[in-house]
Amino acid sequence: MSIQHFRVALIPFFAAFCLPVFAHPETLVKVKDAEDQLGARVGYIELDLNSGKILESFRPEERFPMMSTFKVLLCGAVLSRVDAGQEQLGRRIHYSQNDLVKYSPVTEKHLTDGMTVRELCSAAITMSDNTAANLLLTTIGGPKELTAFLHNMGDHVTRLDRWEPELNEAIPNDERDTTMPAAMATTLRKLLTGELLTLASRQQLIDWMEADKVAGPLLRSALPAGWFIADKSGASERGSRGIIAALGPDGKPSRIVVIYTTGSQATMDERNRQIAEIGASLIKHW
């Protein structure tokens, strides 16, 4: 058993032996400061991975655009179909130039040979490839079927209504393609630790998130040596930015963190910096 498999397999085991986890309101002070700095709403939640207890939250039940963070949920739905014998990670999917949409750094290189379902999930999560996400959405029946999958998990909040890139429109008060921090954190925890997916599929999902290559300026920039993080970021119109993550010290995840912001006029660099500073406060007061 690899170190990674050891880590995921023991998450339920550690729940019975973990020390009490204490919240630190200092992080919420930073979240509120980020709102002031960005001139935008910020949603935040910090969840204990083992118990599911909410440690801190700010606007946990307000809607925010999901942006590309939905791609983790999408690959969770794909893995659920794999577990049920309805899909194979090794199945190759062929597509054409007409299928390519904006920001497809991986799929645009494989027009001649296509990509496997496994490769598409990797591209969608680690590189946020939009065509990969659309191709995967097609395999499960489209955005409405992803919403149905989430409903069956008990998440009646999170919804996907459109495809890439239209889902990134982020119109104020538009509930399409949105979630709430509390709903996203709970759903992510179920995917990573619950019985919905097999152990192998849970491991695969967290491996893809751990290999994320496009979230460096966010929480990863504040991470001390030896800490673990598996994450997925997102960005969209109207100053929207977000990240969902499982992270913790000693090389294993122990908390879920979800951060969303929307409605800012700030630059992408400034949005990144504010999220990184929230992460730094979280780690300092861990």
Rank of each mutant, 00 (worst) to 15 (best):
Leu219Phe: 07
Gln88Thr: 13
Gln203Leu: 08
Asp250Phe: 08
Leu89Thr: 04
Ile93Leu: 12
Asp212Gly: 05
Ala124Cys: 09
Glu61Arg: 14
Ser57His: 09
Val8Phe: 15
Pro105Ala: 04
Ser96Pro: 06
Ala225Cys: 11
Leu38Glu: 05
Val157Ile: 11
Ala40Gly: 15
Thr178Gln: 02
Pro12Glu: 04
Arg238Ala: 14
Ser221Cys: 09
Phe14Leu: 12
Ile243Gln: 01
Ala222Ser: 13
Pro20His: 07
His5Gln: 13
Ile125Met: 11
His24Asp: 08
Thr198His: 09
Ser96Val: 13
Lys252His: 12
Gly239Gln: 03
Ile206Ala: 09
Pro253Asp: 03
Pro224Gln: 02
Ile206Ser: 12
Glu169Gln: 13
Ala245Pro: 00
Glu210Asp: 07
Met66Ile: 11
Thr193Ile: 15
Pro12Leu: 14
Asn98Glu: 14
Ile171Ser: 14
Glu175Asp: 13
Arg271Gln: 13
Pro172Asp: 14
Ala246Pro: 00
Gln88Asn: 14
Leu219Pro: 02
Ile244Thr: 02
Arg220Cys: 01
Leu73Arg: 00
Lys53Ala: 15
Asn168Lys: 03
Leu135Ser: 02
Phe14Ile: 15
Phe228Thr: 03
Phe6Gly: 08
Asp269Gln: 10
Gly216Ser: 09
Thr262Glu: 11
Asp269Ala: 12
Ser201His: 06
Ser96Asn: 14
Ala246Ile: 12
His5Tyr: 12
Glu210Val: 15
Met184Val: 05
Ile283Leu: 06
Leu188Glu: 00
Ala235Gly: 11
Asp161His: 03
Gln86Asn: 15
Ala266His: 09
Pro249Thr: 03
Glu164Lys: 10
Pro12Ser: 14
Thr187Arg: 00
Ala9Val: 10
Ser221Asn: 09
Leu135Glu: 03
Ile275Phe: 11
Leu136Ile: 06
Ser221Asp: 09
Arg162Leu: 04
Asp83His: 01
Ser68Thr: 00
Gln4Lys: 15
Ser240Asp: 14
Thr126Lys: 04
Thr126His: 11
Asp250Tyr: 12
Thr126Pro: 00
Ser281Cys: 12
Ile229Thr: 00
Phe149Leu: 06
Phe6Ser: 09
Pro217Ala: 13
Lys53Cys: 10
Thr187Gln: 02
Arg241His: 05
Gln203Ala: 11
Glu166Gln: 10
Ile278Pro: 00
Lys284Asn: 10
Ala148Ser: 14
Ala15Val: 15
Thr179Leu: 00
Ala183Tyr: 07
Leu38Val: 05
Trp163Pro: 05
Asn134Thr: 02
Glu164Asp: 01
Trp286Arg: 00
Ile243Pro: 00
Leu160His: 02
Gly239Lys: 02
Gly251Thr: 05
His94Ser: 10
Ser281Tyr: 10
Asn272Met: 01
Phe6Cys: 11
Arg202Glu: 07
Glu87His: 02
Gln97Trp: 12
Asp48Gly: 05
Thr262Met: 11
Glu166Arg: 07
Ser80Ile: 08
Pro172Asn: 09
Ser201Tyr: 03
Arg118Asp: 13
Leu10Tyr: 10
Glu61Val: 12
Pro249Ser: 03
Leu188Ile: 09
Thr198Arg: 08
Val214Ala: 08
Ala215Gln: 03
Arg159Gly: 01
Arg176Asn: 06
Asn168Ala: 08
Ser281Phe: 07
Ile171Met: 12
Ile259Val: 08
Pro217Glu: 12
Thr178Ile: 02
Leu73Pro: 11
Met67Ile: 03
Leu49Ile: 15
Trp227Leu: 00
Thr267Ala: 11
Phe6Tyr: 10
Ala200Pro: 13
Glu169Tyr: 09
Asn173Ile: 08
Arg7Asp: 09
Gly114Ala: 05
Phe22Cys: 13
Lys213His: 08
Leu10Met: 12
Val117Ala: 02
Leu218Thr: 03
Leu160Ile: 12
Thr131Tyr: 04
Thr267Cys: 11
Arg91Val: 03
Ser254Tyr: 06
Gly242Phe: 00
His24Thr: 07
Ile243Ser: 00
Arg81Asn: 08
Arg241Ala: 06
Glu119Arg: 03
Ile206Met: 15
Val101Leu: 07
Leu223Met: 11
Ala211Arg: 11
Ala183Asp: 05
Ile243Arg: 00
Asn168Glu: 05
Thr138Ser: 15
Asp269His: 12
Thr186Val: 14
Gly242Val: 00
His285Arg: 06
Phe228Leu: 03
His151Tyr: 11
Val82Asn: 04
Met184Arg: 00
Trp286Ser: 00
Gly194Arg: 07
Arg162Gly: 08
Asp161Leu: 01
Lys252Asn: 10
Ile11His: 04
Lys252Leu: 09
Arg159Gln: 07
Val214Ile: 09
Trp163Val: 08
Gln4Ala: 13
His5Pro: 09
Arg238Glu: 11
Glu270Lys: 09
Ser201Phe: 08
Gly226Glu: 06
Ala183His: 09
Pro172Ile: 09
Pro105Gly: 03
Asn168Gln: 06
Ile11Tyr: 12
Gln265Lys: 13
Met180Thr: 15
Ile54Arg: 07
Phe58Leu: 06
Ser240Ile: 08
Asp129Glu: 00
Asp129Ser: 00
His156Tyr: 11
Ser96Asp: 14
Arg41Leu: 08
Pro12Gln: 11
Gly242Asp: 00
Ile125Val: 11
Glu145Ala: 14
Ala133Gly: 09
Arg176Thr: 06
Gln86Pro: 03
Ser57Ile: 03
Val117Cys: 02
Gly251Cys: 07
Arg271Ser: 10
Lys213Glu: 09
Met268Glu: 07
Thr179Ala: 00
Pro20Leu: 02
Arg41Thr: 08
Lys284Gln: 14
Ala225Ser: 14
Trp227Ser: 00
Asp99Val: 09
Glu56Gln: 07
Asn130Cys: 05
Trp163Leu: 09
Arg63Thr: 06
Val214Glu: 04
